[in-house]
Design a protein around this nucleic acid. Structure first.
Lengths: 304, 304
DNA sequence: ACGTCCATGTAGACAGACTAAACAGTTCAT
DNA sequence: ATGAACTGTTTAGTCTGTCTACATGGACGT
């Protein structure tokens, strides 16, 4: 029962193909296949099964892969303890984010990171992305979900809530509602909306508004990029739901954010991690920095 | 941070010398030394330190060895889960016992053990033995202690209580006290005692009797072997404290066991294990059998 | 039927952990 | 004081095991 081999099985469970595992672990597919074969012989019963041209785990294989995760976690815990002992958060940490969260949090985080800790960031369009899948590739995945709704529970991932960001109604200067301290769903009937592509949390809130107001909303466009949506709103082509902390940066003063009452209108920004990676000291350090930065952003907005 | 190397460090912590580790792991001392050197280089700071002609762990080394134990435990847990999955308790289990407990429990345990599980037993004289030290060599160590008093707490060992066995006063047939249902400490003043060698739990009870009765006891001999003590008692050379469930087998009917009241007179029989070994399915199975057997012995004596 | 995508065999190269033997320091006895 | 016996370490060389490179054999889509 070699740990390395078990790790390979776990990777197979995460990535779904021998080739992907080989790529991720800097090996040839042949090597992976051979090691899995040895593991299977040691285990005493089939762990994998051919399906089409691919390979899937048997129930036994999944069970063993779960155990492999436990081992990986306790191994990571041990090395983290060791790093604490020497108090140095070693190594590199990789991170993916969706654009707005990255813009809001990452610059501040990277500035306050100690030396010897390298944070490699990347961004990924949220519309077409399966956030949990990225945890195989990156140490930390910044994702968003509706409040209360844990879309990715039960996959065995570590979920750390970072902040909840209100979603306001974005209005152009001069709009009839632009002077109001807040608006209710019924105020919004008859407006033209700039929508976002499917899969966004915004979507559900719009439906909730429709439900509450008792009328359908007219949706004129569908964009993924926030800056694009904002420019349309500013141009008077419609109104939109926009995240409070990350809106209006491009053209300050020309977009009016108005809170929406009567509906819980917010998105939750969380960090997703594979449990073993979550234990690494370097990763935990970054997570801590993210939480500090998030609460700071929230406070600075509450003050104004 | 290789697991095998960490395991070696852990063994060093347990056994205290490179040679001992080499012997236990079927390697040459050279191999052990080399691997420890590699580990030290990986760890980044000294783990061992020469002391005299031996080698001791630094505080850093001890810390890392502790982590290594955690890893070993979770690894053992995983393989145990796997064995459960295939429901077969694989492999061999080694056990040491002091003579009386072995005589009382082991035959019954071995009889009811399933196939494919081999139990290797050995006995060790309890007088000169440091029970915890045997956990390095054997999977299960049967040890005894005074009730309530955990002589071997805090060493990071798993302790499973098996039974508490009363210690009665052994009298020869025809002794003035032999007809009594029970005796109190004051009844025992003036008797000549057959003692046991130092370190035995018996010792403390004798002291307690002295304290309670307010008089010193005269001790004529000191033996380790129970059968020898019994034969002296039967010969009328003195009386002795003997464990209730394992006495009088050699010459039935010639030794009278009389309960001692007014003093807690019992010994606790426990199983000692290294935490990682305690997780193995085969080991857990044996422990379960031991507990069953122990409670059965206790019940059968309570019935008479 | 073809090329493409998989996983898997086979042969050989390479790395790393081992043994054997010589070495160096400490302890203890004579 | 000196040698014998014990530590752990170094060196050189062997060997096991994991890797790569290349070839093979199915499964899918066109």
């Amino acid at each position: 029962m070699d740990v390395q081999r078990l790790e390979l099985l776990r990777e197979l469970a995460d990535r779904g193909s021998v080739t992907a595992v080989a790529l991720a672990t800097h090996r040839t597919p042949s090597a992976v296949s051979q090691q899995l074969k040895v593991l299977e012989r040691e285990a005493g019963l089939p762990l994998t099964q051919r399906q089409g041209r691919g390979l899937v785990l048997t129930s036994a294989g999944r069970a063993l892969a779960r155990s492999a995760t436990d081992i990986a976690v306790s191994l990571a815990k041990a090395t983290a303890l060791w790093d604490e002992f020497r108090n140095q958060a070693s190594g590199e940490v990789s991170l993916v984010t969706f654009p707005t969260a990255g813009q809001m949090l990452l610059p501040g985080v990277i500035k306050h990171l100690g030396p010897g800790l390298v944070l490699n960031c990347a961004d990924e369009d949220p519309e077409l992305s399966d956030f949990p899948a990225f945890t195989a590739e990156y140490d930390i995945v910044l994702a968003h979900s509706m409040s209360g709704q844990l879309s990715w529970a039960g996959r065995g991932l570590r979920v750390v809530p970072l902040m909840t960001e209100p979603l306001d109604v974005g209005l152009p200067v001069g709009h009839p509602l632009a002077g109001r301290a807040w608006v209710a769903p019924r105020d919004l009937i008859g407006e033209t909306w700039i929508g976002v592509t499917d899969g966004y949390p915004f979507e559900r809130i719009l439906h909730a508004i429709e439900q509450e107001a008792g009328a359908r909303l007219s949706m004129s466009h569908r964009f993924a990029d926030l800056a694009l949506i904002e420019s349309f709103v500013i141009a008077g082509l419609g109104i939109a739901l926009v995240p409070r902390y990350t809106s209006g940066r491009g053209q300050p003063g020309r977009l009016v954010l108005t809170p929406l009452r009567g509906i819980e209108s917010e998105r939750q920004i969380v960090a997703l991690m594979r449990p073993d990676r979550a234990e690494r000291l370097a990763v935990r350090t970054v997570i801590e920095a993210l939480r500090r930065e998030a609460s700071q952003v929230q406070q600075s907005h509450a003050a104004t």
